Amino acid sequence: MVKKVRTYSYEFKAEVIKKIADNKGNISATAKQLGIAMQTLSNWQNKATQGKLAGTEQYDPQLIAVLEENKRLKRQLKVAEEEREILKKATAYFAKHS
Results as ranks from 00 to 15, higher is better:
Met1Ser: 14
Met1Glu: 08
Val2Arg: 09
Lys3Ala: 05
Lys4Met: 08
Val5Lys: 15
Val5Gln: 15
Thr7Trp: 07
Thr7Lys: 12
Tyr8Leu: 05
Tyr10Cys: 11
Tyr10Val: 03
Phe12Gln: 06
Lys13Gln: 10
Lys13Glu: 02
Lys13Gly: 04
Ala14Val: 01
Glu15Lys: 13
Val16Ala: 03
Lys18Trp: 10
Lys18Thr: 15
Lys19Pro: 03
Ala21Leu: 09
Asp22Asn: 14
Asp22Gly: 12
Lys24Asp: 15
Lys24Trp: 12
Lys24Arg: 15
Lys24Gly: 07
Gly25Cys: 07
Ile27Tyr: 06
Ala29Asn: 15
Thr30Gly: 07
Thr30Asp: 07
Lys32Arg: 15
Gly35Asn: 05
Ala37Tyr: 04
Ala37Pro: 00
Ala37His: 08
Met38Phe: 11
Gln39Met: 13
Thr40Pro: 04
Thr40Met: 08
Leu41Asp: 01
Ser42Lys: 06
Ser42Val: 01
Asn43Arg: 13
Asn46Pro: 00
Ala48Gly: 01
Thr49Leu: 12
Gln50Asp: 09
Gln50Pro: 01
Gly51Phe: 05
Leu53Tyr: 06
Leu53Ser: 04
Ala54Cys: 04
Gly55Ser: 02
Gly55His: 02
Gly55Cys: 04
Gly55Tyr: 00
Thr56His: 00
Asp60Trp: 05
Ile64Lys: 07
Ile64Phe: 00
Val66His: 13
Leu67Gln: 13
Glu69Thr: 10
Asn70Val: 04
Lys71Phe: 07
Arg72Phe: 02
Lys74Gln: 11
Lys74Phe: 02
Leu77Asp: 10
Leu77Ser: 14
Leu77Ala: 14
Leu77Gly: 05
Val79Ser: 09
Ala80Ile: 02
Glu81Ser: 08
Glu81Lys: 14
Glu81Thr: 07
Glu83His: 13
Arg84Val: 05
Glu85Asp: 12
Glu85Ala: 10
Ile86Asp: 08
Leu87Ser: 10
Leu87Gly: 05
Lys88Ser: 05
Lys89Val: 01
Ala90Phe: 05
Tyr93Trp: 12
Tyr93Pro: 04
Phe94Met: 07
Ala95His: 13
His97Asn: 15
His97Met: 12
His97Pro: 03
Ser98Leu: 10
Ser98Gln: 11
